[in-house]
């Protein structure tokens, strides 16, 4: 079988239309939000004073950070599954969330006396945070890895890590509604660790799962 034979076989295979990437992303995102939401509601649920907390800046700021991370990760990931688009993918976008968080930490350090810094950083819920962000983000990560598999990531480990950041940002956005610790010091420490765990998992899994 030479190259011309192969071309003949592939030309005969045009009848089956592959799922467009755009559709794959849409389906994966909807399913990921639903899956994360279900795990969140069953395992944790929002904190009792969540509605009242909406009026506090620190509570809202958690969502600003986690959604900025998820949004930037998604925009980047869309490029990382398309050959040619990945080469000049603007990795700097990923700094949006961390930069906001860093600014928040700076303001927190100004607003809170030094004696309270440590207590704010440790918080009361660190273990729950480290457990449930990965747990809520696991199903979304699997879904995003499935899209990577459908696509063609030329830098699979990087794409997997960014998929982990997207899953982590999404999971943290749910988790933030439960967590009573609102200080940016807490978020910068524990949320980052939990999300980094998902990113590492994605970086390890993607080269195996999304081989093409």
């Amino acid at each position: 079988m030479d190259t011309q034979d192969l071309i003949r076989a592939m030309a005969a295979d045009t009848g089956r239309r592959p799922l467009p990437l755009r559709t794959a992303w849409r389906v994966a995102l909807v399913l990921a939000v639903v899956a994360a939401g279900v795990v969140f509601v069953l395992a944790l649920g929002p904190r009792p004073d969540a509605v009242a907390a909406l009026e506090t800046l620190r509570f809202l700021f958690k969502f600003v950070v986690t959604l900025a991370l998820a949004g930037s990760a998604f925009l980047l990931l869309r490029r990382l599954v398309r050959p040619g688009a990945e080469a000049h993918a603007p990795l700097g976008w990923l700094l949006a969330g961390p930069a906001l968080l860093l600014a928040g930490v700076g303001l927190e350090l100004l607003a809170v006396p030094a004696a309270d810094w440590w207590a704010r950083l440790v918080g009361i819920n660190a273990r729950v945070c480290l457990t449930f962000i990965p747990l809520i983000g696991a199903a979304p990560l699997v879904l995003f890895l499935a899209v990577l598999r459908h696509g063609a990531p030329a830098r699979p480990a990087l794409a997997g890590a960014v998929a982990g950041l997207l899953a982590g940002g999404l999971a943290a956005s749910f988790y933030a509604a439960h967590c009573p610790d609102d200080s940016p010091l807490f978020v910068a420490t524990w949320y980052s660790l939990a999300i980094a765990g998902l990113a590492v998992a994605g970086a390890i899994l993607a080269p195996r799962v999304a081989r093409w």
Partner: peptide, 27 residues
């Protein structure tokens, strides 16, 4: 050619073809 065939949905109809082809070839 096989990769192009199996991954042809990763080309966006409004994007240029050649950079896509060469990126796959390089990979």
């Amino acid at each position: 050619l096989l990769a192009i065939h199996l991954k042809r949905h990763t080309w966006l109809p409004e994007a240029p073809v050649l950079p896509w082809v060469y990126a796959i070839a390089r990979f």
